[in-house]
Design a protein around this nucleic acid. Structure first.
Length: 410
RNA sequence: GCGGGUGUCGCCAAGCGGUUAAGGCCUCGGAUUGUGGUUCCGAUAUUCGUGGGUUCGAUCCCCAUCACCCGCCCCA
Protein backbone atom coordinates (compact mmCIF):
# COMPACT_ATOMS: atom_id res chain seq x y z
CA UNK A 1 0.00 0.00 0.00
CA UNK A 2 1.50 3.31 -1.08
CA UNK A 3 1.15 5.88 1.64
CA UNK A 4 1.33 9.65 1.65
CA UNK A 5 4.91 10.79 2.13
CA UNK A 6 6.21 11.51 5.61
CA UNK A 7 5.21 14.96 6.69
CA UNK A 8 2.45 15.31 4.10
CA UNK A 9 -1.25 15.11 4.72
CA UNK A 10 -4.46 14.77 2.77
CA UNK A 11 -6.98 17.47 3.53
CA UNK A 12 -10.22 15.52 3.71
CA UNK A 13 -13.82 16.55 3.04
CA UNK A 14 -14.56 16.68 6.77
CA UNK A 15 -11.99 19.47 7.17
CA UNK A 16 -12.40 21.31 3.92
CA UNK A 17 -15.04 23.76 5.11
CA UNK A 18 -12.59 25.23 7.62
CA UNK A 19 -9.94 25.60 4.91
CA UNK A 20 -12.43 27.31 2.64
CA UNK A 21 -13.34 29.71 5.41
CA UNK A 22 -9.67 30.54 6.01
CA UNK A 23 -9.37 31.31 2.32
CA UNK A 24 -12.62 33.27 2.04
CA UNK A 25 -11.78 35.45 5.04
CA UNK A 26 -8.34 36.13 3.62
CA UNK A 27 -9.83 37.27 0.33
CA UNK A 28 -12.32 39.45 2.15
CA UNK A 29 -9.89 41.09 4.57
CA UNK A 30 -7.10 41.57 2.04
CA UNK A 31 -9.40 42.93 -0.66
CA UNK A 32 -10.68 45.53 1.78
CA UNK A 33 -7.13 46.77 2.29
CA UNK A 34 -6.26 46.79 -1.42
CA UNK A 35 -4.03 43.71 -1.46
CA UNK A 36 -3.93 41.78 -4.72
CA UNK A 37 -3.36 38.05 -4.88
CA UNK A 38 -0.28 36.81 -6.70
CA UNK A 39 0.39 33.19 -7.65
CA UNK A 40 3.97 32.21 -8.29
CA UNK A 41 5.45 28.83 -9.26
CA UNK A 42 5.95 26.15 -6.65
CA UNK A 43 9.50 25.48 -7.83
CA UNK A 44 12.18 28.04 -8.53
CA UNK A 45 15.89 28.14 -9.25
CA UNK A 46 17.76 26.95 -6.16
CA UNK A 47 19.87 30.06 -6.27
CA UNK A 48 16.82 32.25 -5.62
CA UNK A 49 16.52 30.76 -2.15
CA UNK A 50 20.20 30.47 -1.31
CA UNK A 51 20.62 34.14 -2.12
CA UNK A 52 17.17 35.34 -1.10
CA UNK A 53 16.50 33.44 2.09
CA UNK A 54 20.16 33.35 3.02
CA UNK A 55 23.06 30.93 3.18
CA UNK A 56 23.28 31.00 6.96
CA UNK A 57 19.69 29.83 7.50
CA UNK A 58 18.64 26.32 8.40
CA UNK A 59 16.02 26.52 5.69
CA UNK A 60 18.68 26.78 3.00
CA UNK A 61 21.33 24.65 4.66
CA UNK A 62 19.36 21.55 5.48
CA UNK A 63 15.69 21.84 4.68
CA UNK A 64 15.35 22.37 0.95
CA UNK A 65 13.88 19.90 -1.53
CA UNK A 66 16.37 20.33 -4.33
CA UNK A 67 16.72 18.30 -7.51
CA UNK A 68 18.45 18.48 -10.87
CA UNK A 69 16.52 18.59 -14.11
CA UNK A 70 18.07 19.33 -17.48
CA UNK A 71 21.23 20.51 -15.77
CA UNK A 72 19.36 23.07 -13.73
CA UNK A 73 19.17 23.03 -9.97
CA UNK A 74 15.53 23.35 -8.95
CA UNK A 75 14.08 23.75 -5.47
CA UNK A 76 10.54 23.40 -4.16
CA UNK A 77 9.80 26.72 -2.49
CA UNK A 78 10.42 26.59 1.27
CA UNK A 79 8.75 30.00 1.69
CA UNK A 80 7.29 32.50 -0.71
CA UNK A 81 8.89 35.88 -0.07
CA UNK A 82 11.81 35.14 -2.38
CA UNK A 83 9.45 33.95 -5.11
CA UNK A 84 7.21 36.98 -4.85
CA UNK A 85 10.23 39.29 -4.92
CA UNK A 86 11.49 37.49 -8.02
CA UNK A 87 8.11 37.92 -9.70
CA UNK A 88 7.97 41.54 -8.59
CA UNK A 89 11.28 42.25 -10.29
CA UNK A 90 10.83 40.06 -13.34
CA UNK A 91 7.41 41.48 -14.21
CA UNK A 92 8.37 45.07 -13.54
CA UNK A 93 5.78 45.52 -10.81
CA UNK A 94 8.08 48.16 -9.32
CA UNK A 95 6.81 50.43 -12.09
CA UNK A 96 3.39 50.58 -10.42
CA UNK A 97 2.63 53.34 -7.99
CA UNK A 98 3.83 52.32 -4.56
CA UNK A 99 2.92 50.84 -2.27
CA UNK A 100 2.40 47.58 -4.13
CA UNK A 101 0.39 45.32 -1.88
CA UNK A 102 0.33 41.60 -2.62
CA UNK A 103 -0.90 38.46 -0.92
CA UNK A 104 -0.51 34.76 -1.64
CA UNK A 105 -1.43 31.36 -0.36
CA UNK A 106 -0.17 27.92 -1.19
CA UNK A 107 1.99 24.95 -0.30
CA UNK A 108 5.59 25.28 0.91
CA UNK A 109 8.13 22.51 1.36
CA UNK A 110 10.76 21.99 4.03
CA UNK A 111 12.62 18.79 4.72
CA UNK A 112 12.38 18.62 8.51
CA UNK A 113 11.37 16.04 11.08
CA UNK A 114 7.59 16.33 11.28
CA UNK A 115 5.96 16.98 14.63
CA UNK A 116 2.90 18.74 15.98
CA UNK A 117 2.41 21.89 13.90
CA UNK A 118 5.19 21.03 11.50
CA UNK A 119 4.93 19.21 8.21
CA UNK A 120 7.16 18.81 5.18
CA UNK A 121 4.48 20.10 2.89
CA UNK A 122 2.52 22.81 4.64
CA UNK A 123 0.53 25.83 3.59
CA UNK A 124 1.24 29.45 4.13
CA UNK A 125 -0.83 32.51 3.56
CA UNK A 126 1.01 35.80 3.54
CA UNK A 127 1.28 39.37 2.40
CA UNK A 128 4.14 41.42 0.98
CA UNK A 129 4.13 45.21 0.64
CA UNK A 130 6.66 46.90 -1.60
CA UNK A 131 7.72 50.49 -1.97
CA UNK A 132 7.22 52.08 1.41
CA UNK A 133 9.87 52.46 4.08
CA UNK A 134 7.43 54.29 6.35
CA UNK A 135 6.60 52.79 9.74
CA UNK A 136 2.94 53.24 8.86
CA UNK A 137 3.43 50.44 6.33
CA UNK A 138 4.76 48.22 9.13
CA UNK A 139 1.73 49.10 11.20
CA UNK A 140 -0.70 48.31 8.44
CA UNK A 141 1.06 45.09 7.70
CA UNK A 142 0.84 43.88 11.32
CA UNK A 143 -2.68 45.21 11.66
CA UNK A 144 -3.78 43.28 8.59
CA UNK A 145 -2.48 40.08 10.17
CA UNK A 146 -4.32 40.83 13.39
CA UNK A 147 -7.54 41.73 11.58
CA UNK A 148 -7.35 38.52 9.57
CA UNK A 149 -6.87 36.46 12.73
CA UNK A 150 -9.73 38.32 14.39
CA UNK A 151 -11.97 37.55 11.43
CA UNK A 152 -11.37 33.88 12.17
CA UNK A 153 -12.41 34.35 15.77
CA UNK A 154 -8.90 34.52 17.21
CA UNK A 155 -8.55 37.37 19.66
CA UNK A 156 -6.21 36.20 22.39
CA UNK A 157 -2.96 36.11 20.49
CA UNK A 158 0.34 37.49 21.51
CA UNK A 159 1.92 39.95 19.07
CA UNK A 160 5.64 40.32 19.70
CA UNK A 161 7.65 42.99 17.95
CA UNK A 162 11.27 44.02 17.85
CA UNK A 163 13.62 46.12 15.78
CA UNK A 164 16.82 44.65 14.45
CA UNK A 165 18.09 48.00 13.28
CA UNK A 166 19.48 48.80 9.87
CA UNK A 167 22.70 47.51 8.32
CA UNK A 168 24.71 50.24 10.00
CA UNK A 169 23.54 50.00 13.56
CA UNK A 170 23.29 46.27 13.40
CA UNK A 171 26.92 46.07 12.45
CA UNK A 172 27.89 48.06 15.53
CA UNK A 173 25.67 45.96 17.73
CA UNK A 174 27.02 42.78 16.20
CA UNK A 175 30.60 43.81 16.90
CA UNK A 176 29.80 44.80 20.48
CA UNK A 177 27.97 41.54 21.03
CA UNK A 178 30.91 39.58 19.67
CA UNK A 179 33.26 41.39 22.06
CA UNK A 180 31.12 40.52 25.07
CA UNK A 181 30.63 36.91 24.08
CA UNK A 182 34.21 36.19 23.09
CA UNK A 183 35.55 35.60 26.63
CA UNK A 184 32.94 32.87 27.16
CA UNK A 185 32.67 31.64 23.61
CA UNK A 186 33.96 28.19 24.54
CA UNK A 187 31.03 27.71 26.92
CA UNK A 188 28.39 28.24 24.23
CA UNK A 189 26.89 25.36 22.28
CA UNK A 190 28.27 24.27 18.92
CA UNK A 191 25.49 25.99 17.02
CA UNK A 192 26.16 29.26 18.77
CA UNK A 193 29.85 29.04 17.95
CA UNK A 194 28.87 28.86 14.30
CA UNK A 195 26.40 31.68 14.77
CA UNK A 196 29.16 33.73 16.32
CA UNK A 197 30.88 33.66 12.95
CA UNK A 198 27.94 33.85 10.59
CA UNK A 199 25.12 35.67 12.36
CA UNK A 200 25.81 36.49 16.01
CA UNK A 201 22.36 37.99 16.57
CA UNK A 202 20.91 34.51 16.32
CA UNK A 203 22.73 33.60 19.52
CA UNK A 204 20.17 35.75 21.31
CA UNK A 205 17.34 33.38 20.61
CA UNK A 206 19.23 30.16 21.17
CA UNK A 207 16.93 27.80 23.08
CA UNK A 208 19.78 25.98 24.77
CA UNK A 209 19.41 26.65 28.53
CA UNK A 210 23.13 26.94 29.18
CA UNK A 211 23.52 29.52 26.40
CA UNK A 212 20.53 31.30 27.84
CA UNK A 213 22.27 31.38 31.21
CA UNK A 214 25.39 32.86 29.64
CA UNK A 215 23.32 35.57 27.99
CA UNK A 216 22.01 36.68 31.37
CA UNK A 217 25.37 38.16 32.15
CA UNK A 218 24.98 41.83 33.02
CA UNK A 219 27.03 43.41 30.29
CA UNK A 220 25.21 41.40 27.64
CA UNK A 221 21.80 42.23 29.07
CA UNK A 222 22.83 45.86 29.22
CA UNK A 223 23.80 45.74 25.58
CA UNK A 224 20.49 44.13 24.63
CA UNK A 225 18.51 46.61 26.68
CA UNK A 226 20.35 49.74 25.68
CA UNK A 227 18.69 50.56 22.46
CA UNK A 228 21.53 49.69 20.19
CA UNK A 229 19.67 50.85 17.15
CA UNK A 230 20.52 54.20 15.63
CA UNK A 231 18.36 57.26 16.01
CA UNK A 232 16.53 56.78 12.72
CA UNK A 233 15.76 53.17 13.44
CA UNK A 234 14.62 54.06 16.94
CA UNK A 235 12.31 56.68 15.57
CA UNK A 236 10.93 54.21 13.06
CA UNK A 237 10.24 51.74 15.85
CA UNK A 238 8.69 54.40 18.07
CA UNK A 239 6.35 55.48 15.31
CA UNK A 240 5.36 51.91 14.61
CA UNK A 241 4.47 51.48 18.27
CA UNK A 242 2.41 54.65 18.30
CA UNK A 243 0.49 53.53 15.21
CA UNK A 244 -0.18 50.15 16.76
CA UNK A 245 -1.41 51.90 19.90
CA UNK A 246 -3.67 54.03 17.77
CA UNK A 247 -5.10 50.91 16.11
CA UNK A 248 -5.55 49.22 19.51
CA UNK A 249 -3.29 46.38 18.53
CA UNK A 250 -1.91 44.79 21.68
CA UNK A 251 1.74 43.91 21.43
CA UNK A 252 4.76 43.25 23.57
CA UNK A 253 8.32 44.22 22.71
CA UNK A 254 10.58 41.19 22.76
CA UNK A 255 14.19 42.33 22.55
CA UNK A 256 15.40 38.82 21.89
CA UNK A 257 13.14 38.25 18.93
CA UNK A 258 15.59 37.80 16.07
CA UNK A 259 14.10 35.39 13.52
CA UNK A 260 16.04 32.95 11.46
CA UNK A 261 15.88 34.43 8.01
CA UNK A 262 18.74 36.60 6.84
CA UNK A 263 16.81 39.21 4.93
CA UNK A 264 15.13 41.04 7.80
CA UNK A 265 16.04 44.52 8.97
CA UNK A 266 14.35 46.96 11.34
CA UNK A 267 10.90 45.64 12.24
CA UNK A 268 10.43 41.94 12.96
CA UNK A 269 7.36 40.38 14.59
CA UNK A 270 5.71 37.12 15.50
CA UNK A 271 2.22 36.24 16.56
CA UNK A 272 2.11 33.36 19.01
CA UNK A 273 -0.51 31.23 20.65
CA UNK A 274 -0.19 29.25 23.84
CA UNK A 275 -2.63 26.72 22.44
CA UNK A 276 -0.17 25.46 19.83
CA UNK A 277 2.40 23.52 21.82
CA UNK A 278 6.05 23.92 21.04
CA UNK A 279 5.56 25.17 17.50
CA UNK A 280 3.74 28.19 18.83
CA UNK A 281 4.22 30.84 16.14
CA UNK A 282 1.22 31.19 13.87
CA UNK A 283 2.58 34.22 12.03
CA UNK A 284 6.04 35.60 11.46
CA UNK A 285 7.37 38.46 9.43
CA UNK A 286 9.32 41.63 9.17
CA UNK A 287 10.83 44.31 7.03
CA UNK A 288 13.30 43.40 4.30
CA UNK A 289 14.44 46.62 2.71
CA UNK A 290 17.50 45.16 1.02
CA UNK A 291 16.10 42.05 -0.61
CA UNK A 292 14.68 43.46 -3.85
CA UNK A 293 17.94 45.14 -4.71
CA UNK A 294 19.95 42.13 -3.66
CA UNK A 295 17.98 39.96 -6.07
CA UNK A 296 18.64 42.33 -8.93
CA UNK A 297 15.77 44.80 -8.76
CA UNK A 298 15.74 48.52 -8.04
CA UNK A 299 16.27 49.40 -4.38
CA UNK A 300 12.80 48.94 -2.91
CA UNK A 301 11.84 48.82 0.75
CA UNK A 302 9.44 46.03 1.65
CA UNK A 303 7.72 44.27 4.51
CA UNK A 304 5.65 41.14 4.84
CA UNK A 305 4.55 38.17 6.90
CA UNK A 306 3.48 34.57 6.50
CA UNK A 307 1.11 32.42 8.50
CA UNK A 308 1.13 28.66 8.77
CA UNK A 309 -2.32 27.57 7.72
CA UNK A 310 -2.17 24.19 9.45
CA UNK A 311 -1.39 25.98 12.70
CA UNK A 312 -4.19 28.41 12.02
CA UNK A 313 -6.47 25.47 11.33
CA UNK A 314 -5.70 23.91 14.69
CA UNK A 315 -6.54 27.17 16.46
CA UNK A 316 -9.91 27.94 14.94
CA UNK A 317 -13.23 26.35 15.62
CA UNK A 318 -13.93 23.64 13.10
CA UNK A 319 -16.83 24.25 10.74
CA UNK A 320 -19.08 21.45 9.66
CA UNK A 321 -19.99 21.18 6.03
CA UNK A 322 -23.39 22.56 5.21
CA UNK A 323 -26.39 20.40 4.46
CA UNK A 324 -27.80 20.11 0.98
CA UNK A 325 -31.00 22.01 0.29
CA UNK A 326 -32.72 18.86 -0.91
CA UNK A 327 -32.42 15.13 -1.38
CA UNK A 328 -34.61 13.56 -4.04
CA UNK A 329 -36.27 10.34 -2.89
CA UNK A 330 -37.31 8.26 -5.86
CA UNK A 331 -37.48 4.76 -7.25
CA UNK A 332 -36.79 6.10 -10.71
CA UNK A 333 -33.17 7.25 -10.96
CA UNK A 334 -33.55 8.70 -14.44
CA UNK A 335 -36.44 10.93 -13.39
CA UNK A 336 -34.59 11.77 -10.17
CA UNK A 337 -31.55 12.87 -12.13
CA UNK A 338 -33.71 15.00 -14.42
CA UNK A 339 -35.37 16.63 -11.42
CA UNK A 340 -32.02 17.26 -9.73
CA UNK A 341 -30.76 18.96 -12.84
CA UNK A 342 -33.77 21.25 -12.81
CA UNK A 343 -33.42 22.00 -9.10
CA UNK A 344 -29.74 22.76 -9.53
CA UNK A 345 -30.57 25.18 -12.33
CA UNK A 346 -32.77 26.91 -9.79
CA UNK A 347 -29.81 27.24 -7.46
CA UNK A 348 -30.88 24.42 -5.18
CA UNK A 349 -28.14 22.08 -4.03
CA UNK A 350 -29.36 18.50 -4.16
CA UNK A 351 -28.55 14.86 -4.75
CA UNK A 352 -30.35 11.55 -5.19
CA UNK A 353 -29.88 7.80 -4.82
CA UNK A 354 -28.42 6.04 -7.84
CA UNK A 355 -29.43 2.60 -6.58
CA UNK A 356 -33.17 3.02 -6.00
CA UNK A 357 -32.94 1.76 -2.46
CA UNK A 358 -36.02 1.48 -0.32
CA UNK A 359 -37.65 4.78 0.54
CA UNK A 360 -36.88 4.15 4.18
CA UNK A 361 -33.17 4.06 3.38
CA UNK A 362 -33.41 7.06 1.15
CA UNK A 363 -35.17 9.06 3.85
CA UNK A 364 -32.56 7.96 6.31
CA UNK A 365 -29.86 9.37 4.09
CA UNK A 366 -31.88 12.49 3.29
CA UNK A 367 -32.31 13.33 6.95
CA UNK A 368 -28.57 13.15 7.47
CA UNK A 369 -27.45 15.30 4.58
CA UNK A 370 -30.34 17.54 3.50
CA UNK A 371 -32.91 20.02 4.77
CA UNK A 372 -35.72 18.84 2.52
CA UNK A 373 -36.70 15.48 1.10
CA UNK A 374 -38.33 15.76 -2.31
CA UNK A 375 -40.32 12.65 -3.10
CA UNK A 376 -40.67 11.73 -6.74
CA UNK A 377 -42.48 8.40 -6.88
CA UNK A 378 -45.08 6.82 -9.13
CA UNK A 379 -47.97 8.92 -7.84
CA UNK A 380 -46.04 12.18 -8.17
CA UNK A 381 -45.01 11.28 -11.69
CA UNK A 382 -48.62 10.54 -12.58
CA UNK A 383 -49.91 13.81 -11.20
CA UNK A 384 -46.86 15.83 -12.19
CA UNK A 385 -46.31 17.01 -8.64
CA UNK A 386 -43.64 16.74 -5.96
CA UNK A 387 -43.98 15.83 -2.32
CA UNK A 388 -41.72 18.08 -0.28
CA UNK A 389 -40.96 17.19 3.30
CA UNK A 390 -39.24 19.54 5.68
CA UNK A 391 -36.94 17.15 7.49
CA UNK A 392 -36.67 19.29 10.58
CA UNK A 393 -40.34 19.99 11.19
CA UNK A 394 -41.61 16.83 9.44
CA UNK A 395 -44.18 18.94 7.59
CA UNK A 396 -45.01 17.46 4.24
CA UNK A 397 -46.82 19.01 1.28
CA UNK A 398 -47.78 17.87 -2.17
CA UNK A 399 -47.03 20.72 -4.55
CA UNK A 400 -46.50 21.52 -8.17
CA UNK A 401 -42.92 21.95 -9.22
CA UNK A 402 -42.66 25.73 -9.09
CA UNK A 403 -44.25 25.94 -5.63
CA UNK A 404 -41.93 23.19 -4.45
CA UNK A 405 -38.92 25.15 -5.67
CA UNK A 406 -40.23 28.27 -3.94
CA UNK A 407 -40.67 26.38 -0.69
CA UNK A 408 -37.16 24.93 -0.78
CA UNK A 409 -35.65 28.30 -1.61
CA UNK A 410 -37.53 30.17 1.10
C1' G B 1 20.94 15.16 13.15
C1' C B 2 19.60 13.60 18.44
C1' G B 3 15.99 11.74 22.36
C1' G B 4 11.06 9.39 23.80
C1' G B 5 6.39 6.80 22.43
C1' U B 6 2.92 3.91 19.54
C1' G B 7 1.28 0.22 15.70
C1' U B 8 -5.49 -5.10 16.90
C1' C B 9 -11.68 -4.12 11.13
C1' G B 10 -12.88 2.51 7.56
C1' C B 11 -12.73 5.11 12.86
C1' C B 12 -12.35 4.59 18.46
C1' A B 13 -10.67 0.61 21.02
C1' A B 14 -10.64 -4.47 24.90
C1' G B 15 -7.44 -8.47 25.22
C1' C B 16 -1.09 -8.75 27.83
C1' G B 17 1.42 -16.50 26.63
C1' G B 18 -3.69 -21.28 25.29
C1' U B 19 -10.09 -16.44 23.78
C1' U B 20 -14.76 -18.74 18.43
C1' A B 21 -9.79 -11.84 18.77
C1' A B 22 -14.85 -8.16 23.27
C1' G B 23 -17.52 -3.65 22.66
C1' G B 24 -18.86 1.20 20.43
C1' C B 25 -19.26 4.34 15.90
C1' C B 26 -19.70 4.17 10.62
C1' U B 27 -21.34 1.06 6.51
C1' C B 28 -24.71 -2.70 4.53
C1' G B 29 -29.25 -5.74 4.98
C1' G B 30 -33.92 -6.87 7.66
C1' A B 31 -38.45 -5.92 11.33
C1' U B 32 -46.50 -6.87 6.23
C1' U B 33 -41.68 -3.97 0.17
C1' G B 34 -43.65 5.06 -0.49
C1' U B 35 -41.29 8.31 4.81
C1' G B 36 -36.18 9.54 8.24
C1' G B 37 -33.56 11.52 12.56
C1' U B 38 -35.93 6.42 18.14
C1' U B 39 -35.85 1.13 18.90
C1' C B 40 -34.85 -4.07 17.74
C1' C B 41 -32.39 -8.03 14.81
C1' G B 42 -28.48 -9.55 11.54
C1' A B 43 -23.74 -8.99 8.48
C1' U B 44 -18.61 -7.33 8.20
C1' A B 45 -10.70 -8.94 11.23
C1' U B 46 -8.79 -17.23 8.94
C1' U B 47 -6.22 -12.15 11.87
C1' C B 48 -3.53 -8.41 15.55
C1' G B 49 2.35 -3.00 10.81
C1' U B 50 6.32 -6.45 8.43
C1' G B 51 10.31 -10.22 8.89
C1' G B 52 12.79 -13.35 12.06
C1' G B 53 13.45 -15.76 17.02
C1' U B 54 11.93 -17.95 22.05
C1' U B 55 7.94 -21.54 23.24
C1' C B 56 4.19 -27.56 22.88
C1' G B 57 1.62 -22.86 21.81
C1' A B 58 2.38 -15.81 20.71
C1' U B 59 -1.78 -10.16 19.20
C1' C B 60 0.48 -10.61 23.92
C1' C B 61 7.98 -12.14 25.37
C1' C B 62 12.86 -10.98 22.45
C1' C B 63 15.46 -8.96 18.05
C1' A B 64 15.30 -6.44 13.58
C1' U B 65 12.70 -3.51 10.16
C1' C B 66 9.04 -0.08 8.48
C1' A B 67 5.43 3.51 9.42
C1' C B 68 3.34 7.17 12.31
C1' C B 69 3.28 10.38 16.65
C1' C B 70 5.72 13.52 20.41
C1' G B 71 10.02 16.40 22.10
C1' C B 72 15.03 19.00 20.87
C1' C B 73 16.90 22.07 16.87
C1' C B 74 14.65 25.46 13.49
C1' C B 75 10.46 27.71 11.66
C1' A B 76 4.76 29.18 9.82
Amino acid sequence: MIQAQKGTKDILPQDIKTWQIMEEKALDIFNKSNFYEIRTPIFEATELFSRGVGDSTDIVNKEMYTFEKAERSITLRPENTAGVVRAFIENGLFRLTPPIKLWYKGPMFRYERPQAGRQRQFHQIGIEMFGSAEPIADAECINTAVKYLNSLGLNDLNVEINSLGCTNCRETFRNNLRKLILPNLEKFCEDCKLRYEKNPLRILDCKNPSCNELLKEKSIQNLINTDFICEECAEHFAKLKSYLDMLNVNYTVNKQLVRGLDYYNRTVFEIKSNALGSQNAVCGGGRYDGLVEMLGGPATPAIGWAMGMERLFSLIEQSKSQKLDAFVVSDNPAEALKLCEELRCNNISCDFDYASRKFKKQFEKASKIANFAVVLGESELETNTLTVKNLESSEQLNLNKSDAIKLICS
